[in-house]
Structures are given as structure tokens and as C-alpha cells.
């Protein structure tokens, strides 16, 4: 077994043992689906320009956002704070393997959460499946890349695990606002809509909804996601400290 496989196996066990991260990643999207699906949010609202895809896309995107903004940076910053990365750097294995393993585990959790949402949407709430599967997949990959790049940046900048959690939450709430989680469709004030188009979570959710409804994601959304992923990823790689 290669070193990365071995580390990833151990890190996935640790991920599942940590109740907070497991609940955040899986219970939150399922809970959102069940609660809001039951009160009929899944039916959409043509008057307010809210697509029926809003609910599943929101559930899915929020679960990716929690993993990327909170779970991943908290774990990595804690590993650095407790000298776990430093301890690894005295072995023949580069601590970068742990970073890669953590990314893999959290991406896998994102995919599992997404699949759970899709299954629930189709089977329990009759919301169907994304009409443009390829577009949806592209939008998902880019959204995850942008959000996780930001998460890595948080992990790079936060001195402690607690600081990473706070910083992640500080990003999470405005992200939800500008993604229109509380003000979907035309309910969002018009001044905030341009921000929605380019903010990572907003752009991601718009791209996912558009594909769900059968169209192709807007170029604005996709470019915004790519730019965020590239910039946050590059800066994170530059400023990340192992100790």
C-alpha cells in the first residue's frame, strides 16, 4: 500500500470518528432537504424566480462549504498547532501527504453528501435529477475546487485550530448571504446580486441550479470559480507553514 493510500485510510477513519465533522457533512444536507422539502420549498416559486433546484443545490453546496471552510482548515491548523505536521517532517514522509489525504477525505465526503442529496431529491421529494448532468458535474467540480482552495488558505493563515474554525465561520455566513441562502431568486436585494454572480458559493450555486434546470452554467459563474480557485490555491501554497 502506498504511503498516501495508508495515510488517507487512517485520515478517513479519523474523519468518521470525529462526530462534528461527520454530522456537519452528512446530517446537515439531509436535514435541510427533509425540513425545507416538507414545507414545500422544493417546488420552487416562479413568481420570485426561484427554481425547484434551489433546495437540493443549497443543501449540497452548504455541505461542501462546511467541509471546505470549517472541517478541513480546522483539522489542518490543529495538526500544525499540535506539532503533528512537524513530527511527520522528521520521518521519511513529507507532511504534504497528510494535507493531500485530508483534501481527498473531505472531497470524498463532499461527493457522498452530494449523492445523498441527489438520491433524496429524486426519491423522496420528486425533484428529479439534474437535466444537464455534464454541466452539473463541471459546476460541482469547480465549486468544490474554489471552496476547498479557500479552505486551504484559511488553514495556511490560521495560527491555531480554534482560529481556523472562527475564520471559517466568518467566511461561511457572508458566503451564505451572498449566495442567497436566505433570499433565493428575486428575493435577494438587487444591489447584492452582482456579488452573488461572482462570490464562490453564489456562483457555484447559480451554476449548479442552471445545470439542474437543463441549461449550461453562465461563463461569469465559471470564470469566477476558476479565478477564486487559482488565486486562493496559489496564495495558500505560498504561505502555508508546516510548523
Amino acid at each position: 500500500m502506498s504511503t498516501l493510500t495508508k495515510i488517507t485510510t487512517v485520515e478517513s477513519k479519523l474523519f468518521l470518528r470525529d462526530t462534528t465533522s461527520a454530522v456537519m457533512a452528512f446530517a446537515l444536507p439531509v436535514g435541510l432537504m427533509v425540513v425545507f422539502g416538507s414545507i414545500g420549498l422544493g417546488e420552487g416559486d416562479t413568481e420570485q424566480n426561484i427554481s425547484g433546484a434551489f433546495l437540493p443545490v443549497m443543501a449540497l453546496a452548504l455541505s461542501v462549504a462546511i467541509l471546505a471552510f470549517s472541517v478541513l482548515p480546522t483539522v489542518l491548523a490543529t495538526y500544525r498547532e499540535k506539532g503533528i505536521l512537524r513530527r511527520l517532517s522528521t520521518t521519511p514522509v513529507h507532511p504534504g501527504n497528510v494535507l493531500a489525504a485530508q483534501l481527498l477525505v473531505n472531497l470524498a465526503a463532499s461527493v457522498v453528501a452530494a449523492v445523498a442529496v441527489l438520491v433524496l431529491a429524486a426519491a423522496a421529494f420528486d425533484l428529479g435529477v439534474p437535466d444537464n448532468g455534464v454541466g452539473f458535474l463541471i459546476a460541482f467540480v469547480l465549486t468544490a475546487s474554489a471552496l476547498f482552495a479557500i479552505g486551504l488558505l484559511v488553514a495556511a493563515l490560521a495560527p491555531t485550530g480554534k482560529a481556523a474554525t472562527s475564520l471559517g465561520m466568518l467566511l461561511f455566513f457572508p458566503s451564505m448571504f451572498f449566495a442567497g441562502v436566505w433570499t433565493p431568486g428575486d428575493l435577494m436585494p438587487s444591489w447584492a446580486r452582482p456579488v452573488r454572480d461572482v462570490s464562490p458559493l453564489g456562483a457555484g450555486m447559480e451554476a449548479l441550479q442552471k445545470s439542474w434546470d437543463g441549461g449550461w452554467p453562465d461563463a461569469t459563474n465559471l470564470v469566477a470559480l476558476v479565478v477564486v480557485a487559482a488565486i486562493a490555491g496559489t496564495v495558500a501554497a505560498k504561505v502555508f507553514r508546516w510548523e
Binding site: 495515510i7 487512517v10 477513519k13 479519523l14 470518528r17 470525529d18 503533528i84 520521518t91 521519511p92
Partner: peptide
Amino acid sequence: AQLQESELPENITVAEAIDLYASFY
């Protein structure tokens, strides 16, 4: 090396930690 004030992930078991580090060498 045994470092001053270096910990392990809180949820890793003794056997897992030793197996993991063994795989590095």
C-alpha cells in the same frame, strides 16, 4: 525523533499510529 510537545491526532489509536509510522520506513 521524539519531539518536545508534539502530539498525535486525538482520535488515532495506539496500533494505528504505530502501523502508520511503520509504513513510512
